[in-house]
């Protein structure tokens, strides 16, 4: 069976409703060979918010992302997993052009947000980043008050027309981030004085204060303790009602808990994409299985 046919047939296979997956697991299907780096699985969805086609990223000579094509569906949580240095963060940063800030970074291919090619020459990154928010690995609140942290985005984008409107946005964002009850009596205190988990939720509040449509999260829980992680995960599940979320994580349980689809990256290749439940129960690719069973990573 040629590679192409394999991919096609597997793709067809993944269209099988989820309840059937269990039976496939028992069949112990043969995995795709480790050397084959063609993407397998459910790359494309019916109503995508973002579509990425043949994306390549180079850091100078280094080919960091190799020919990745994937859709990001509306109101879904897409988890990106993979061993360290596999390019998942790099790919995430392509989605709101944060890679622009890195000297020597070059992106080819096409990434569309709805119908807009975000890498087109005359695209302004400022509105793009307002639309595609980002939460970083390490909580990075500004060394300002909690209120100013959240209010900064709406202020620079002119989202609030009055002081009270701004205060409403701040309160709403903090509520959605599940932080309001903890900080409403000390909004004027520095955001850097909060605990790690609170800081990360403050960063999430800051990101959603500019009303983005898509939120990118780059290992948002890697610096947090389990309880703070659980809070943030609950928050992600809740945010899914209104936002499309792409999350990079090292924690496979986390990916399984919060995401609907999971993408597995390996050394710059997007190896496999699929429904989260299937990826973790019956991966189609040998590399994916190796990773989720802990053979490396």
């Amino acid at each position: 069976m040629s590679t192409l046919e394999t991919t096609a047939s597997l793709q067809k296979g993944f269209a099988v409703p989820r309840e059937n997956i269990g039976s496939r697991v028992q069949k112990k299907s043969r995995k795709i060979d480790r050397e084959n780096r063609e993407t397998v699985g459910l790359q494309f969805v019916d109503d995508p918010r973002m579509t990425c086609r043949a994306v390549n990223v180079f850091y100078g000579e280094k080919h960091a992302i190799k020919n990745v094509s994937i859709d990001i569906g509306k109101n879904e949580v897409l988890a990106m997993i993979g061993p360290s240095g596999c390019g998942k963060s790099t790919f995430l940063r392509c989605l709101n052009r944060m890679n622009d800030t890195i000297v020597g970074c070059r992106v080819t291919g096409e990434i569309r947000l709805d119908d807009l090619d975000i890498y087109e020459k005359n695209i302004d990154v400022v509105p793009l980043r307002a639309q595609v928010g980002m939460v970083f690995q390490k909580p990075n609140p500004f060394p300002k008050s909690i209120y100013d942290n959240v209010a900064y985005g709406p202020k620079i984008h002119g989202l609030a027309h009055s002081r009270s409107e701004l205060a409403d946005i701040v309160e709403d964002s903090l509520r959605r981030a599940g932080l309001w009850n903890e900080v409403n009596d000390r909004l004027d205190q520095p955001g850097t004085g909060l605990s790690g988990g609170q800081q990360q939720r403050l960063c999430i509040a800051r990101a959603i204060a500019v009303r983005p449509e898509i939120i990118l999260m780059d290992e948002p829980c890697s610096a947090l303790d389990p309880i703070a992680t659980a809070t943030v995960e609950d928050l992600i599940s809740e945010l899914r009602q209104h936002y499309t979320i792409v999350i990079v994580t090292h924690n496979m349980q986390q990916a399984a808990r919060v995401s609907q689809r999971t993408a597995y990256f390996h050394l710059g290749d997007l190896v496999e994409v699929g429904h989260t439940s299937r990826i973790f129960t019956n991966p189609a690719h040998q590399l994916t299985e190796d990773y989720i069973t802990g053979r490396f990573g």
Binding site: N96, M98, T101, V126, P127, L128, R129, A130, G133, M134, V135, F136, K138, N140, P141, F142, P143, Y152, G153, I156, H157, C203, R206, A207, A209, V210
Partner: peptide, 27 residues
């Protein structure tokens, strides 16, 4: 000035000038 602060500002859509004036210069 830590790059995380720059990224935070850029990540919520601050322009380069705003990032510098509001965050980098004060620090």
């Amino acid at each position: 000035v830590p790059p995380s602060i720059r990224e935070a500002a850029l990540g919520i859509g601050a322009s380069k000038m705003q990032m510098i004036l509001h965050h980098v210069l004060p620090l």
